[in-house]
């Protein structure tokens, strides 16, 4: 599987604070990858690094086989729809399409016009007067009609109402189906990503906590509940992600490739949201081999 993004010990420091540190992961090509994490986890920093808007403080990042932002060929391969989807307020919708056409060698004008028409945007409207949803759609149109290999979207739907959010994601998915482009999009809301993503990267406190194919992650994580017991007595192949205990009961989220055979457990699956929350709550530094450093005892 070829990777559309490869990060090796990637780090970015602003003055004294590390917004991102020691991130090593890959994002496969041909997938829609969700980047999830709480606000301030470093999602924007990571995406801006991938788009070449920022340069790493340490480590390396490779996008579509090149250094982000390095020359026109690399810029043509990567589309970036920045947070709050900026557009030129004084330029019209048609001007924006002309901007795209003049500045991008691979511009698909027919596609852009078709999209604008279908969205019902008036080409002579100034972009400053568009609603948030329309502005996001215009920015997405510029990103798609550029025909990039990888489209990066930074919190594209955060500012949109539910209807606009839905329409935006529909259009994005349609473009993915039509042109086979890879997508990385971030959100602090898991619900936005649940349907559209098939690959996931969880970022917490400037570090990557989890990365993998969504199906695989859901299939290998289980919620176990049963009589109270010490997590240290679990089989070695079951990694505990979260654990909570009452006097009589223990509830765990574990990761394992093997089936869970212990009849004492009631085993249930996890939704994406449960899965992400389990990792968000996981204390920093809990290694892949280790038990959780802290468990909740009541």
């Amino acid at each position: 599987m070829s990777a559309v993004l490869r990060a090796r010990h990637l780090g970015k420091r602003y003055k004294q604070r590390w917004a991102l540190s020691d991130c090593t992961f890959e994002v496969p090509a041909g997938h829609v990858t969700g980047l999830v994490g709480p606000n301030g986890a470093g999602k924007s920093t990571l995406l801006n690094l991938a788009a070449g808007m920022l340069t790493p403080t340490s480590g390396t990042i490779e996008v579509c086989g090149g250094v982000p932002g390095d020359g026109p060929a690399q810029l043509a391969k990567v589309g970036f729809v920045a947070q709050d989807t900026p557009v030129y307020a004084s330029l019209t919708v048609a001007d924006h399409l002309r901007l795209g056409a003049r500045l991008n060698p691979g511009w698909d004008d027919a596609l852009a016009r078709r999209r604008i028409e279908r969205l019902g945007l008036d080409p002579d409207q100034r972009a400053g007067r568009l609603s948030g949803g329309q502005r996001a759609q215009l920015a997405l149109t510029l990103g798609i009609a550029k025909r990039p290999e990888l489209l990066i979207l930074d919190e594209p739907v955060a500012a949109l109402d539910p209807l606009a959010r839905r329409e935006f994601l529909q259009d994005l998915m349609e473009a993915v189906a039509e042109h086979g482009l890879s997508v990385i999009l971030s959100s602090h809301l898991v619900a936005d990503l649940e349907r559209v993503c098939d690959h996931l990267v969880v970022l917490v406190a400037s570090q990557v906590r989890l990365a993998g194919a969504l199906d695989e992650l859901l299939a290998t994580h289980h919620r176990l509940s049963g009589p109270r017991r010490d997590v240290a007595t679990l089989p070695a192949d079951q990694e505990v992600i979260s654990a909570s205990h009452t006097d009589r009961q223990t509830t765990l989220v574990v990761r394992t490739e093997a089936p869970i055979l212990d009849p004492a457990w009631t085993v249930s699956g996890l939704t994406l949201e449960d899965l992400v929350l389990a990792y968000l709550a996981r204390p920093a530094g809990a290694g892949s081999a280790g038990r959780p450093a802290l468990t909740v005892l009541r």
């Binding site: 997938h31 994601l169 998915m173 349609e174």
Partner: peptide
């Protein structure tokens, strides 16, 4: 494409 455009889900699904 039709399913994806209607449901806003991942084409791979």
């Amino acid at each position: 494409k039709e399913v994806v455009a209607r449901l806003a889900i991942n084409p791979n699904t």
